[in-house]
Structure formats: structure tokens, C-alpha cells
Amino acid sequence: MKYIFARIYAPAFWGGFIGASLWLTGVAGLREGWLLPLFLAALALSFLAEWALPYEVSWNRSVGDRARDIIHGLVNEALNALGLLALPGLVALLSFDGAWPRGWPLWLQLALAIFIADAGLSLMHYASHRVQWLWRLHAVHHSVQRLYGFNGLMKHPLHQLLEASAGLLPLLLLGIPPDVAALLAFAIAIQLLLQHSNVDMQLGYLRWIFAWAPVHRFHHMKYGQAGDVNFALFFNLWDWLLGTGFYTADYEIRQGDLGIGSRPDFPRDYVAQLLDPFGPVSLSKEPAVPEPLRR
């Protein structure tokens, strides 16, 4: 039973919840506010699955970070909600009239939005590892010592705004409708849950397509440039194009492999993390890269 669960969990979670969001909005005709309880259900299922079939048992135990991560999540989701409220005005101000294919089926409009946003978000993520001031903001996300579903929402709010702008600006210019934008925000939240999940999911050939946890864990390694891989949010296509795609079955990411190797003392409380990008920083020597990870 565990083998079957490990195989079907990720595609069933992704397709089930995104499919449910499309049904609620497009078929049942409910307002986008119903996406919030649907996301809470996804969050609850994510936690239950992590306890039922954990990849790393120790990652299910709080290390004094749970309250902080909840604050990060609430702040960043509130920023997303404000962005959705402002969306109609931004579209009216910036868009090219008639550019968005409103006649397409809702699921196809969402697929287009995901594809375009994924390109912008992945490129901003890539830049955040190349541009120093962007990295200082992004480092908050990389300071985690364990990976579980809620980590995907743990970001500095300024970096969250920059990432959202990179993903949303092309869609604003095209005139994305508010309901499609709400579905996109929901799909991103579902993807982040899967990307940082502590479920021992077995992806098979899907690991070459989707940027889910078994692939993304390599991005959170503490070994300097060895973790400079797998930047994509939804689809690994962008990493293959950038030349940054990486996966090996010869090394399992475990407790002690995560974080920022040159900053083992990175601040852990919420306010200190907000202030960290704007203060001086001292770096320590990075740990040696394990042999199977050397490229």
C-alpha cells in the first residue's frame, strides 16, 4: 500500500486539487473565495501525508521554526490576496486590449498562465542566485534546516513581491482575467506544497517533467554551488534550457544537508530574517561537497 501511495501521491495531489479548483470556478460557478478552504484542505492533507509516509522523519519535528514559518506564510499569502484585489485596475492600466484568449476553455487559459508565469518565476529565481542583493533577500528561503510543505511559503516579503512581479507582469500585459489569476495563485500554492514536501514520493519518469520534492531537494543543499541547480517552479524544462537541471539517485538529501553552508548561524526568528538582507554579513568556510554531488 505504501508503494502505491508513494507512486500516486504527487500526481493525484497536483491534478486533484488543481482540477477541483477549476471545477469550483468554471463548472459550479462559485466565487474565487472558495479557493481558500480548498487550499486549507490541501495543506491539511499535505501534513497528514508527511506524517504517514515521511521522506526524512526528523523533518516532521519542529526545531523552533513552526511559528515563524506560519507568520511567513500568512504575510506572503496576504500579499498575494492584495495583488489579486488590485488586479483589475492593473490590467486596465497595463494590458493590450484583447490580447488574452478569453474564448479558450478555462483549463486551457490556466495552463497558458502557468506556462508563462513559470518562465518568469524561474528566471527570477535563477537571477536571485546570481545578483548579490537579490540573493540577500532570497537567502531567507534557503536558511531552512528541514524541508516540509509549508517551507514553500517561507520567503522574505520583498523577494515574494519581486518574484510575483516577474511571473505576473507578462500576464498583466496580456490582460489576464481575475478568475484565471486566482486559479494561477492557487496552482502556485499547490505546487509549492509539493515542491517542498517531506512525503517520500516516488516520481519515476515524472521527475524529468515536474519540479517536485525529489528534484527540488537538491536545490536546498548547503554545499555552495552544488545547490545551484533546479530553479524551476512548475516544470523542469526551464532548467534543461538553462543547463541547471540535476538529479542523481546516488545521493539522498538528509538531515544536516540543508541550509546555507557559509552561514550556519543564519537568524531564525521572523523579525531578524526580515532585517538580515540590510545588515553586514560574515561568511564562514563552506562545507566540502560530497563526492556523488560533484559535477
Score class of each variant (00 low, 15 high):
residue 4 I to A: 13
residue 5 F to C: 06
residue 6 A to P: 03
residue 9 Y to F: 15
residue 11 P to E: 09
residue 14 W to C: 08
residue 14 W to K: 03
residue 21 S to E: 06
residue 21 S to R: 02
residue 22 L to M: 12
residue 28 A to Q: 14
residue 36 L to C: 07
residue 41 A to W: 07
residue 43 L to G: 08
residue 44 A to I: 13
residue 45 L to P: 06
residue 46 S to I: 01
residue 47 F to H: 14
residue 47 F to G: 11
residue 48 L to A: 15
residue 49 A to I: 11
residue 58 S to D: 13
residue 58 S to T: 10
residue 59 W to P: 02
residue 64 G to T: 11
residue 65 D to G: 10
residue 66 R to H: 12
residue 68 R to M: 14
residue 68 R to F: 06
residue 71 I to D: 02
residue 72 H to V: 12
residue 75 V to L: 11
residue 78 A to V: 00
residue 81 A to S: 08
residue 83 G to T: 01
residue 83 G to L: 07
residue 85 L to G: 07
residue 87 L to T: 01
residue 89 G to P: 00
residue 94 L to V: 12
residue 96 F to G: 12
residue 99 A to N: 01
residue 99 A to C: 04
residue 102 R to W: 00
residue 107 W to I: 02
residue 110 L to G: 03
residue 111 A to M: 09
residue 116 I to H: 05
residue 119 A to Y: 09
residue 120 G to F: 12
residue 121 L to H: 12
residue 123 L to R: 01
residue 125 H to W: 08
residue 131 V to N: 06
residue 136 R to L: 10
residue 137 L to W: 06
residue 147 L to A: 06
residue 149 G to M: 05
residue 150 F to L: 15
residue 158 L to C: 07
residue 166 A to C: 14
residue 172 L to D: 04
residue 174 L to K: 01
residue 174 L to H: 01
residue 175 G to K: 00
residue 177 P to N: 09
residue 179 D to S: 12
residue 180 V to K: 05
residue 180 V to N: 02
residue 184 L to N: 04
residue 185 A to H: 05
residue 189 A to P: 00
residue 190 I to R: 05
residue 191 Q to C: 13
residue 192 L to W: 05
residue 193 L to Q: 10
residue 194 L to M: 05
residue 195 Q to L: 01
residue 198 N to W: 08
residue 198 N to C: 11
residue 200 D to A: 15
residue 204 G to Y: 09
residue 209 I to H: 10
residue 209 I to D: 06
residue 211 A to I: 00
residue 211 A to C: 04
residue 212 W to C: 00
residue 215 V to Q: 10
residue 217 R to V: 07
residue 222 K to P: 01
residue 223 Y to F: 15
residue 228 D to W: 13
residue 231 F to A: 03
residue 235 F to L: 15
residue 244 T to Y: 06
residue 245 G to P: 00
residue 247 Y to K: 09
residue 248 T to I: 07
residue 259 G to N: 08
residue 261 G to D: 02
residue 263 R to S: 02
residue 270 Y to C: 06
residue 274 L to N: 07
residue 277 P to Y: 04
residue 279 G to W: 10
residue 279 G to E: 10
residue 280 P to R: 09
residue 281 V to F: 00
residue 282 S to T: 15
residue 283 L to T: 05
residue 285 K to Y: 00
residue 291 E to G: 02
residue 293 L to G: 07
